[in-house]
Design a protein around this nucleic acid. Structure first.
Lengths: 212, 212
DNA sequence: CAGCATCCGCTTTGATACTG
DNA sequence: CAGTATCAAAGCGGATGCTG
């Protein structure tokens, strides 16, 4: 990116992460952890492959991302956030918070990946019974299952399935977005087609009080 | 901006504020309040005038900025953030926080406007003696004076001069940045050319404990 | 002078094809 | 799998001109 040439902290930050696609690459690495090139490309539908390569090089140069060449047998490189890159979580979190209202409309032809709900889920959900034994909830929406777990009073989300989830909810991205963000109460989500199996109390324990 | 076409809160947010210059326009309105077109242009050195007009129109359409036509005698329009626009403060704040380390190098040919220190100052300074009577500090650096005031235990900053400031500090943007961010202790800043007149205790009351 | 709109050359991006 | 190469289209930057 061309530098703004301004002695201003915000402008300097944008000199590094203000390019198109750059913050979405950071989003991918925050939501999924270390990724291969192909994982990134799959999580960033629409990006041109040369742009992905360019951006990764710039981010590496800026000290935001590190490229980790795996040993010969594996023969695949891993990209991960450096400490400096992890510090962008606060920026992305606020961006996500600001962007959540736009999710009300639902995806109208938009691409969707389930792990895009990881960051908003961690922002919106809370463990309201931290003294009770931890619970695991599996969310099935879009291309892959999502796991939501209570850990030490906070809520962690990640891609993956569980064999012994306390509850399993299944629904369209639109309804799941409404549920996780607190826009929809559980009953309303069910009325809109959400399927909820297992221990509903485990679910209610972490859902935000709606309407948010 | 072309939409990313992703059903993701961060991507949706960037669809609106991810264009080049857009967040810097928001920075201007956050740091200075309502601005005329010409004020914005002056606070955004390097922007092409047509881009400023374009961005303002997009931001207005997105409900982030409102254009207020002043009554006939004044004949000048004012741009201000809407409530939705004000909510971007959290995003800009995190961006500023992340960008502050880049200020260590000093402006190497970068443009500078004193009001660019308003947001970082409010982020970094705290009133450590809220029970005592409020103080006012004038900071002279760059193109215009800056006022820093304690209000109800917090610290507000804005453009402007005071007739009766408790303290007046004068220095280069580089040294002032170091002082405000806590990278430089007051003594070190003075050794680097900072001039400090008046009640030094008023200053120490709000400065971050260095090294930050 | 404030607030743009137009034009033009350059850079960045997007889509696709191709390679080690 | 992990990119590079190519090229058209879009966006940006700078200059200038227009209008109340």
């Amino acid at each position: 990116m061309r530098s703004y040439g301004q002695y201003c902290a915000a402008a300097k930050a944008l000199d590094v992460i203000g390019d198109r696609w750059t913050l979405l690459i950071v989003r991918e690495l925050l939501a999924r952890g270390a990724c291969r090139y192909t994982d990134l490309r799959d999580g960033l539908p629409g990006i041109a492959t040369n742009l992905l390569a360019d951006r990764l090089r710039q981010l590496e140069e800026a000290g935001v991302v590190s490229r980790e060449e795996a040993p010969p047998p594996i023969a695949t490189a891993l990209f991960r956030l450096t400490l400096r890159g992890e510090e962008l979580r606060a920026v992305i979190d606020e961006l996500v918070r600001w962007g959540i209202p736009f999710m009300v409309d639902g995806p109208n032809g938009d691409a969707f990946r389930a792990h895009w709900f990881v960051l908003p889920a961690e922002l919106a959900l809370t463990d309201r019974a931290p003294q009770r034994p931890p619970v695991t909830i599996e969310v099935r929406t879009g291309d892959a299952p999502l796991l939501i777990e209570t850990v030490d009073g906070s809520v962690r989300a990640r891609q993956g399935a569980a064999e012994d989830a306390d509850a399993v909810v299944t629904g369209t991205p639109h309804v799941v977005a409404g549920l996780l963000s607190g826009r929809l109460a559980l009953d309303d989500a069910v009325a809109l087609g959400l399927d909820c199996e297992g221990d509903v109390r485990a679910l209610r324990r972490v859902l935000p009080r709606s309407p948010a």
